[in-house]
Design a protein around this nucleic acid. Structure first.
Lengths: 245, 245
DNA sequence: CGCGTCCTTGAACCGCGTCAAGCCAGGTGG
DNA sequence: CCACCTGGCTTGACGCGGTTCAAGGACGCG
């Protein structure tokens, strides 16, 4: 198995103004590193539904998402796929290491996605020259770990219905939303099920129930959340919501 | 609610030879930082069963475990406690941040545990002056996140029996073991249940079943794993085991 | 010796995963 | 332009597994 890459972009690392998370990281990189990155063509465009990297491939560095959406997925031998994390603009995919290690997970682009691949050596160089960059990376991982731990807890205690509600909120928080406007989720039932850790039928049932009670509307596979605060309230026994933001 | 601390130790940061993970981290700290840490008495001894920090307390920095065991726990409002992570020698507890944030989780010492508290400012100072230290911290978080993601996936697909087997292996991998010798797990049924995300009854049933099939022995609450490889095999459909080590 | 705590085992209810059938929308070809 | 087909959404029915409740036993402690 090998890392599957999209088209190489000939740009240097952009400042990425419309992507606060990443620009926050990148602005701390010194000129030298930026030039190196540009020369070495480390920016890629991954088309929708293609792998950023595949399960079982060799770890060579970390991927930063400039613009786009990706899901971190994991198959087991029974061919069931589980989505373990969602990543949007400015997030980090993959895990850097000094040793040769293998990924137990893969990442798939959910839309055309611009990523920047930082090979281990370059990554270390960036950290060494840019302590603020290092600090931002640590904060990112620290936050993601916290989110992941929370998901762990929630999933082991929630009933299926609640897991599905959680999946909706997780999607919203991963890709951003504003409290006021209506939120559109355009995921297939199967995709939602893979996040919630259940099956499409249960997702469908839960949506019907939520629709009935006026929490959301649906049109084909599209879901429109009309009352976000009430939806959050359903999970109030489990969560303090600030932390997902 | 306030941070509950144990006795303050008057030592400076030790090199901690018997604790490879942490010594690996700490050896990269410069003398100045070590002196500062020593002066500011940032080392604490947390007695067994006391909180290192409590759910809902303010985030002020990160805790490094020198020697001991701790569990990261999380209560929901129905008073069910879930253990989301185990941490042994050299591991990091808590999550650093620039802003004022709240922990959604707490940490409890599982035995008398020596920890070192790095307040945010000091932590940043360490990172700035010690790029290798920063890199090690990033590696640690990256690895923990990977483990957590894997746990996420596994738990959403495994049956209860398998989750309990997983809990045993998770305990072993967190606190270290050698493949050859017999491994003693001295946890109450309820504690194991909190890790596996189920109830003590199921833990008890699973243990009986495993005992019957010769995977382990038990004596009161003590569990002795006699055949680790066979135990791992039970979960082979889910896991590539290297990554937990 | 009595009490409390934890482990163990049994029994009953019910949530949910699975299977199956019906429905609707979009795409294709005659 | 319509007939057909395919794939995803929806809903119902069934059966298994697990949570919960309850009772009995082992052990330590006062």
């Amino acid at each position: 198995m090998r890392i599957q890459k999209g088209n190489v972009l000939n740009t240097s690392i952009p400042t990425c103004r419309n992507c606060p998370n990443l620009s926050c990281l990148i602005q701390y990189c010194d000129q030298e590193a930026k030039a190196f990155a540009g020369e070495n063509k480390i920016n890629y465009l991954i088309p929708k539904d293609q792998y950023v990297f595949q399960e079982g491939s060799l770890v060579l560095g970390a991927y930063f998402i400039f613009k786009g959406k990706a899901k971190v997925v994991s198959n087991n031998l029974q061919n069931r796929q589980q989505t373990v994390r969602l990543a949007g603009d400015g997030h980090i995919l993959g895990h850097m290491t000094l040793d040769k290690e293998f990924y137990p997970i893969g990442a798939v682009a959910m839309e055309d996605t611009k990523v920047c691949f930082l090979e281990n050596k370059l990554f270390f160089q960036l950290i060494s020259n840019n302590p603020k960059f290092a600090y931002q990376v640590i904060r990112f991982y620290s936050k993601e770990l916290r989110k992941s731990e929370l998901r762990n807890r929630s999933f082991s205690q929630m009933k299926t219905f609640e897991k599905i509600v959680f999946a909706f909120l997780y999607i919203c928080s991963s890709f951003g939303y504003t409290e006021k406007e209506k939120i559109l989720i355009d995921f297939s039932r199967a995709e939602i099920a893979a996040i919630a850790g259940t099956n499409p039928e249960q997702v469908s049932r839960s949506i019907s129930l939520l629709k009935e009670k006026g929490y959301l509307e649906s049109d084909g596979q599209k879901i429109i959340i009309t009352d976000m605060p009430k939806l959050k309230e359903l999970l109030s026994p489990y969560l303090s919501w600030e932390i997902l933001e």
